[in-house]
Design a binder for these strands. Structure first.
Length: 333
DNA sequence: AATTGGCTCAACCGCGCCTGG
DNA sequence: CCCAGGCGCGGTTGAGCCAAT
C-alpha cells in the first residue's frame, strides 16, 4: 500500500513556472510568509500547484539573495572537500555556501565538478600526479566490480575514489596503490555508524541552523580511511592498527590540496610550502572549535605545524582511532 | 539547413524523518 | 505509544539549448 499523495495530482499544474505564478508566490510569501504550511499555500494564493512544488520554487529560485551559476574557485574547493568528506548531503554543503541552493550545487557537482575531477584523472599523462596514480584508477574500477556494493553506496565509492586518487598521488607506497592488499569485503560496521550519524546530522534544517559539519566530516574519515584498510572497531575485539609509513609524507596534505586545485583548474601549484589558496575554515567549525583549533580532517596549516613530524597516514590513524573510540562511546558499540 | 548527440538545470518523485493530535 | 500529515532531502527526469556533423 503506497502513501497517499500530498495533493490531487490530477488538478495541479506541472512543469515550468510562468512569470505570473512566480509573482503570485513571491508576493504572497514576502507579505505573509509561508504560514508554516506549504500544502495549503497554493490554495490560498489560487495557484494550481502542488505545495511541494511551491516550496521548491521559492527555495531554489524566488528566495532573496539566491546566486545562480558563476561558482568561484573557492566554492568549487569547498564543494569538493565537503563532498569527499560527507558525501551527497547537498543541503549541508549548501549551508556552507551563502546564496547557493542544494539543487544548484547538486546539479553543478553532477554535471561539471565530478567530471572535472574524475574525468581528468582518467586521462593518461596529464600531470605529474598521474604518473604515480595509475594504479588507483584501475583499482577504483576494480572496486566497482569486486567491492560489495551492498556495503558502500555509489556516493561512498565515488568519494573513496576521489580520496584515494588524491592520497595516492603523493604516496606510491600507499595502501591504496596496492589493491592486492585490500580486504575483499569492507567492514559493515562502517555503514552502521555512518547511518547513525546521518540521522543525527540531518535532523536540523540547514537554512535555519548550521549543521555540525565537523561531526560529519569526522565520521567520514572512518568511512573513507578506515574501511578500505579493513579496520576493526574496538568493540569487535580488534585493535586499531595502521602501519606508519616510512615514506615521509609531511608534504602530502599540502600536496593533496594542491592537487585538488590542479585537478579543478589545471594550474601548476607547488606541492610543498605553497601559501596560495588557503582553504577557508568552515564558519560553523570556527564557531564550534574556535579559530585555532585544527581538527579538520583536511588539515590546515596549523595542523601541519602541530604534526610536523607525523606523516599524513599516521596522523589519520591517530585521528581515526580517536574517532572510533568516540563513536564507540557514543553509540554504545 | 536539418539532424543528432551531449549538456545543463529546473522541476518532479519518492522516501525517511519529524511533529502534533 | 500510535498514526497521519507535512517537511526536507537526495535521486532522477526531461525540456531546452547548443555545438558538431
Amino acid at each position: 500500500m503506497g502513501r497517499a499523495p500530498c495533493c490531487d495530482k490530477t488538478n495541479v499544474k506541472k512543469g515550468p513556472w510562468s512569470p505570473e505564478e512566480d509573482a503570485k508566490l513571491k508576493d504572497y510569501i514576502e507579505e505573509h510568509g509561508t504560514g508554516g504550511n506549504w500544502i495549503a499555500l497554493p490554495n490560498k494564493i489560487g495557484l494550481k500547484r502542488c505545495g511541494k512544488s511551491c516550496r521548491l520554487r521559492w527555495l531554489n529560485y524566488l528566495r532573496p539573495n539566491i546566486k545562480h551559476g558563476g561558482f568561484t574557485e573557492e566554492e568549487d574547493q569547498t564543494i569538493c572537500r565537503l563532498y569527499i568528506s560527507i558525501g551527497s548531503r547537498w543541503s549541508i554543503i549548501a549551508a556552507q555556501l551563502p546564496g547557493r541552493t542544494d539543487n544548484d550545487i547538486k546539479n553543478y557537482w553532477n554535471t561539471r565538478l565530478k567530471k572535472k575531477l574524475l574525468g581528468k584523472q582518467r586521462e593518461p599523462n596529464r600531470s605529474r600526479s598521474l604518473h604515480l596514480n595509475h594504479v588507483p584508477g584501475d583499482a577504483a574500477d576494480r572496486l566497482k566490480h569486486e567491492a560489495p556494493s551492498q556495503t558502500l553506496s555509489a556516493s561512498a565509492l565515488e568519494r573513496m575514489q576521489l580520496h584515494m586518487q588524491l592520497q595516492g598521488l603523493h604516496n606510491p607506497f600507499s595502501f591504496y596503490n596496492h589493491p592486492e592488499l585490500w580486504p575483499k569485503y569492507y567492514h559493515p560496521l562502517g555503514d552502521k555508524i555512518f547511518q547513525s550519524q546521518t540521522t543525527d546530522a540531518t535532523a536540523t534544517t540547514p537554512v535555519q541552523q548550521a549543521p555540525d559539519v565537523s561531526k560529519l566530516m569526522s565520521t567520514n574519515i572512518q568511512e573513507t580511511d578506515c574501511l578500505p584498510l579493513g579496520f576493526r572497531s574496538p568493540s569487535s575485539g580488534g585493535t586499531l592498527s595502521m602501519e606508519t609509513s616510512s615514506s615521509n609524507l609531511d608534504s602530502a596534505t599540502a600536496g593533496v590540496r594542491a592537487d585538488l586545485h590542479d585537478l579543478l583548474y589545471c594550474k601548476n601549484s607547488s606541492t610543498v610550502g605553497h601559501e596560495e589558496h588557503q582553504l577557508v575554515d568552515l564558519d560553523c567549525y570556527k564557531e564550534i572549535y574556535g579559530e585555532t583549533e585544527s581538527t579538520n580532517w583536511w588539515p590546515t596549516e596549523g595542523f601541519m605545524d602541530q604534526t610536523a613530524t607525523v606523516s599524513w597516514d599516521s596522523a589519520s590513524a591517530l585521528h581515526s582511532e580517536f574517532m572510533w573510540q568516540e563513536n564507540g562511546l557514543r553509540f554504545g558499540l
